[in-house]
Amino acid sequence: MSELLRRYGAPLTATFAALTAFWLLALVVLPYLYLFENSFRPYLPVVDVGGPKDVYSLDNYLTFFESPIHIKVFFWTIIYSSIVTVLCFAIAYPLAYYLSKVAKSAVVPTLFLLLLIPLWVSEILRSFAWFIILALKGPLNYGLLGLGIIDQPVRWLSGFRSIIIGLVYTYVLFMLFPLYNAIQSLDTNQIEAAEDLGSPWWRTHWRVILPHSKPGIASGAVTVFMLSAGSILVPTLLASTTSRWFTEIIQQWMFESQDWNTGSAYAFLLMLLCTVFVTVMMRVFRVSLADIAK
């Protein structure tokens, strides 16, 4: 702060601080507080708001625990988000290793650009693109049929398949970048030392590179998992009648039932339960928050 003051003077520094404070308080904290407060109040006709019936209770939260179907959707969301996370790791790890240790440093920026360009296209457009690719008579089935890999077109847009594909595609880079950073910080001599001591490539990965990348894996996994579980666009656009995502239920409460109170309660429940799940997973894999912050 004193550094800022010295460099920009009092008026500019005050403006910066005020703008940041406005963004944080008015645009982030206040809306959350509003929803949080609402989540404890009943959904009432406008005339009753503020009346004797408008009292705080946990009823909105209990609604969730009394609806087996919502609990089931929640678990499917958690399970499929975990699958998405694992798939993202499986795709991103070899790629990150290649980019950080194998590829010639001159071509790395180009490769990164190629990876980033799709990110410039909006998520909605990308999801629509997948909708077209995955359609029953779409290019993917056409290609697979043409190559003779399948003899019947696959219904990609049924069940959770299309959601998994869409989410992996959308969030894989959030796994790639922390992994890339982690692997790149490993001294290449250690990889060579392992090989020199007779280690086959898979053991070098298992004993040297993976343990070193753990913080990167953890931060990538948390990001991908949280983004997947909280994603609304991909599940809405690529879902079928048999796949429901928890965020869709929140959306239904809010926009179809116009019940913002229960919707808020569900949203906070999702956040809370996901946080619990992530914390448990971090315990299981012995990662601490400090590791991730690195």
Partner: peptide, 16 residues
């Protein structure tokens, strides 16, 4: 290198 009867000590040692 993993099949050669040599062992290399690196300049920075490269301990794990």
């Amino acid at each position: 290198p993993n099949k050669r009867p040599t062992a290399l000590i690196f300049q920075n040692l490269a301990l794990f």
